[in-house]
Design a protein around this nucleic acid. Structure first.
Length: 330
DNA sequence: CGATTTTGACCGGCGC
DNA sequence: GCGCCGGTCAAAATCG
């Protein structure tokens, strides 16, 4: 299914520059600056716990362990794999906001927040119908001989990491070079899903990009695998500069959405989580609430992040692994 | 002219 | 076993 389970970190970004994607160096980053309660100091001491957890968690080795990729701890989450069946509740997506996106698509999170009924239309008329065999003459030669992986390792168990981004552009600039290798229609969605692969040789990282069928302004990006090379383009984000809310704009810093969540989970991004995500630790997802964006701020580059996590097919829930980070502050 | 995108076919897993 | 479906391949088209 299209909405396959996965840990989804929902991030919302607002950029005024339309289609600045390929240039990629001007994506502004703000850190929850518009949140009324924003208080950078509150995270540092108290939230150190989950930040710390994330650091460990996002470390790749730890990630493997935590997700049961190493044999020693695999059984820990095997149960989680078994019972995850839930689907995102559409209503939860950005429930608090009104969809006033009509004129200012880049300034507010518009959640359709419709009920599950949205899945109806579309879907029909897939062009994927059977290949009409024959005609055309000699056919058989066109078979694809894929290199078989040697026995045991069939399916890749690469960790997948998905997040949602409110963006007008489908493909977000993250500093890496990607080559598109496929596109498929998503079931129950009018929007296609694109498949990208890192162009660096020997790098097997893949990436899927699709637009939410519920809220077209939201892009769901899923990274798979781990880059084994530095970012080909320029600089990377540093947590130092972005930590202070005053420096909402960090023009020199692209989004740097790497395939690794540690970069932005490890630093101040957590503050955004803490502030903007309201979720029940017991539920399987967290719903987002939108802080009001006042029109005056349109000229600012608001880059707000929301994290929305769902279930992962292979690795279980993030909150199950690191429950502390999903606790709501009283 | 090389690199990338487009796009239909093919593959393999899964459910019926 | 067949058909659906998500994912991938690769030839053709397009881009820079």
């Amino acid at each position: 299914m299209s909405n396959e389970p996965g840990n989804l970190y929902f991030r919302s970004l607002f950029h005024d520059n339309q289609h600045g994607d390929t240039t990629g160096t001007s994506v502004p980053v703000s850190v929850a600056g518009s949140s009324p309660d924003y208080n950078p100091q509150q995270f540092d001491p108290s939230q150190m716990s989950y930040t710390d957890c994330l650091h460990g968690f996002m470390d790749y080795n730890s990630l493997e362990k935590a997700f049961g990729m190493s044999p020693s701890s695999s059984e820990v989450f095997s149960s989680i794999e078994g019972n995850q069946k839930q689907v995102i509740s559409p209503g939860e997506l950005g429930g608090g906001s009104e969809n006033n996106m009509g004129t200012t698509p880049n300034s507010s999170i518009s959640s359709s927040s419709t009920e599950a009924g949205a899945e109806e239309d579309s879907g029909k008329s897939k062009k994927d119908l059977q290949p009409k065999g024959s005609e055309d003459g000699g056919d058989s030669s066109k078979k694809i001989s894929k290199a078989k992986n040697k026995k045991g390792e069939k399916r890749q168990k690469e960790p997948r990491f998905a997040f949602m981004t409110k963006s007008e552009v489908d493909h977000l600039e993250d500093g890496y070079r990607w080559r598109k290798y496929g596109q498929k229609a998503v079931k129950n969605s009018p929007y296609p899903r694109s498949y990208y692969r890192c162009t660096t040789q020997k790098c097997t990282v893949k990436k899927r990009v699709e637009r939410s069928f519920q809220d077209p302004s939201i892009v769901i990006t899923t990274y798979e695998g781990q880059h084994n090379h530095p970012i080909p383009t320029t600089l990377r984000g540093n947590s130092a500069g972005m930590f202070q809310p005053s420096s909402m704009l960090t023009p020199a810093m692209p989004m740097n959405l790497s395939s690794f969540p540690q970069e932005w989970l490890g630093n101040n991004y957590m503050s955004s989580i803490h502030n903007q995500v309201s979720g029940a630790a017991g539920s399987n997802y967290m719903h987002l609430h939108q802080q009001n964006v006042n029109p005056l701020d349109h000229h600012h580059h608001h880059h707000q992040q929301y994290y929305h996590h769902q279930q992962l097919p292979d690795y279980g829930l993030l909150q199950d692994i690191v429950p502390s980070m999903f606790k709501r502050e009283p």
